[in-house]
């Protein structure tokens, strides 16, 4: 029974750990399905984390904090989008710049908030479900946003099959064709980038408001980059993104749990695992053209200029 309980709490912790990755990665899936690669995820998460934290400190309302986090992420994404989509700047260089800009602005503006603490938070309760043995601690004791992410992934999965979803995918495959059919390619891409940025910002706010409830400079600790890798890892499929995020969360938590159990695995080796997994999957994808061709947006990273 003790074994089951500890597996249950490990599952619960893995889901919590994977949620920020899932949010950011779902946002990036929106971007990349429309053909825009956004390397600014880390900066958008940091900006979202600070905006969410600061707003919650001042207003005491974490709902407003989440909204502010999403707005901050969307704002930085809009700057990125304006440059990369309308001015045809290199998407990779602009994304990197956005990442550094977001991290820098957040560090600078965040100085007064490093000593702040959030007040009392209501513990989410799902009635009697939370008290079910084993399943309760594993599945029913999470923040509402954790369940929101699951719904979002399912919704995106089906949305990609609807008419608007097909238009977005068409733009990611062949913007010229979509343009010829009369769709406003740049505006749709911009909307996808802004939505993706909002989800990255929300992921940041989840970190600073729920997961590690505090603000410090650089607190996302590379999660934005893992989310980028995860998007590719999941071959741009929302449900796989969710699964991948929870697996990464599980690897992170497993190494800490094993140590606590007294299992002597070199912790440095275990710290490498999420990154090793990412590289492994990237290799598998590039080795399997069939796998890649199935979902890789054909125009990913290529600017589209209808006038040119």
């Amino acid at each position: 029974m003790a074994g089951l309980d500890s597996i249950a709490s490990l599952c619960g912790a893995s889901i919590d750990a994977g949620t920020a990755l899932a949010l950011a990665s779902l946002g990036l899936t929106c971007n990349e399905r429309a053909g825009v690669i956004n390397l600014g995820a880390e900066g958008m998460m940091l900006l979202g984390a600070l905006a969410g934290f600061a707003t919650t400190v001042h207003t005491g309302a974490s709902l407003l904090g989440f909204a502010a986090g999403a707005l901050a992420g969307a704002t930085l994404a809009a700057v990125f989008g304006a440059l990369a989509i309308w001015l045809d700047t290199n998407q990779y260089a602009t994304g990197l710049a956005a990442s550094l800009l977001g991290a820098g602005v957040a560090a600078f503006a965040g100085v007064p908030y490093t000593r702040e603490a959030l007040g009392e938070r209501a513990t989410p309760a799902l009635g009697g479900l939370a008290d079910v043995p084993v399943l309760g601690p594993a599945l029913f004791r999470h923040h509402p946003l954790v369940y929101g992410v699951v719904l979002l992934a399912v919704a995106l999965h089906y949305l990609l099959e609807t008419r608007p979803g097909l238009i977005v995918r068409g733009i990611g495959e062949s913007p010229e064709t979509a343009h010829a059919l009369g769709y406003p390619v740049r505006r749709i891409r911009f909307a996808c980038v802004a939505a993706g940025g909002a989800l990255c910002g929300l992921a940041g706010a989840y970190l600073s408001l729920v997961y590690t409830p505090l603000w410090v400079e650089g607190m996302t600790a590379g999660k934005g980059w893992i989310a980028l890798a995860l998007t590719t890892f999941a071959t741009w499929r929302p449900l796989l993104v969710l699964l991948g995020a929870y697996s990464f969360g599980a690897v992170t938590m497993l190494q800490l749990h094993l140590q606590g159990e007294g299992v002597s695995v070199p912790s440095q080796l275990l710290s490498m695992l999420p990154y090793l997994a990412t590289i492994l999957v990237l290799v598998l994808i590039s080795r399997g053209p069939a796998l890649r061709r199935a979902t890789l947006p054909a125009s990913l990273g290529k600017p589209f200029n209808p006038g040119a």
Binding site: A13, A17, V216, K223, H257, Q259
Partner: peptide, 16 residues
């Protein structure tokens, strides 16, 4: 200094 990881480690200890 890695706040998310410090928090995760703390959670792992609590779970145990």
């Amino acid at each position: 200094f890695d706040p998310p990881k410090e928090g995760e480690a703390a959670q792992a200890l609590i779970n145990q």
